[in-house]
């Protein structure tokens, strides 16, 4: 049947759910093998962090949309966790092929990596639903408050760290629709053009360090 904007948006929610029907909100067997291959097994920390971030997410979601929607927040968070574990497994497989290593202990014990990855997965879920409510014509609904960069504030995540996962996320999740890839591209642009330059951004410290390392480290002469 012809696609109306609502049907197209609903379709993308159905697609998102469809893509995730076989994904679990627990680490898969392959992921557990990666965890076991680490010098320090990150399993417990990952499970604990997902629980903690879940509580924060549901609380902030209820505050933004209304207490009666807490169940909705749980539902969205669960979808986000499914996508988080799915993309993590795909990322590790491609890194294993690229680097010919199986021990990802440093990466998998890096809390910022996990928080950024989960935030990106939740941003995909939230943008899919918000896109739907916008198409429904209720621009004034509370859900539009949940647009990017809402998720950065919820997880107290630096935009700079969120930025790091975007490209690898898109490469690792081939089922992302073009409107979602465009959305993540816009998030990236928004970070580069404004959010990353907030006063407390770690970017300034990194720039300071690179300047201190001196001209020897300058990768390119100004002329280029």
């Amino acid at each position: 049947p012809p696609q109306t904007p609502i049907r197209a948006a609903m379709y993308s929610i159905q697609q998102l759910r469809g893509e995730l029907t076989s994904a679990s909100d627990q680490p898969s067997g392959n992921l557990i093998v990666y965890f076991k291959n680490c010098t320090v097994d990150p399993s417990e920390e990952i499970t604990k962090r997902v629980e903690q971030l879940g509580q924060i997410f549901c609380q902030k979601f209820a505050e933004a949309v209304g207490q009666r929607c807490e169940g909705l927040g749980k539902e969205r968070f669960t979808l986000g966790v499914q996508l988080y574990y799915k993309v993590m497994e795909s990322m590790l497989k491609s890194e294993e092929k690229r680097l010919s290593v199986q021990n990802f202990s440093k990466l998998l014990n890096n809390a910022t990596f996990h928080t950024s990855l989960l935030a990106c997965a939740l941003e995909v879920v939230m943008a899919t639903y918000v896109g739907n409510s916008l198409k429904n014509g209720n621009e004034n609904g509370n859900e539009t408050d949940l647009c990017f960069p809402w998720i950065l504030d919820v997880f107290q995540l630096y935009a700079f760290d969120f930025y790091k996962v975007i490209e690898s996320f898109i490469k690792a999740e081939p089922t992302l629709k073009h409107n979602m890839i465009e959305h993540l591209g816009r998030c990236e642009q928004q970070i580069m053009e404004s959010i990353a330059w907030k006063a407390d951004s770690p970017l300034f410290e990194l720039l300071r360090q690179s300047r201190e390392e001196g001209p020897g480290e300058q990768a390119e002469p100004p002329a280029t």
Binding site: E95, L99, F113, E167, I170, E182
Partner: peptide
């Protein structure tokens, strides 16, 4: 994908971005 400008080099990936290489 025409919808996104990929900027990472062949030798760059998520491990390098999080200083885990």
């Amino acid at each position: 994908s025409p919808d996104y400008h990929f900027g990472l080099e062949e030798h760059e990936g998520i491990s390098e971005l999080f200083d885990c290489d």
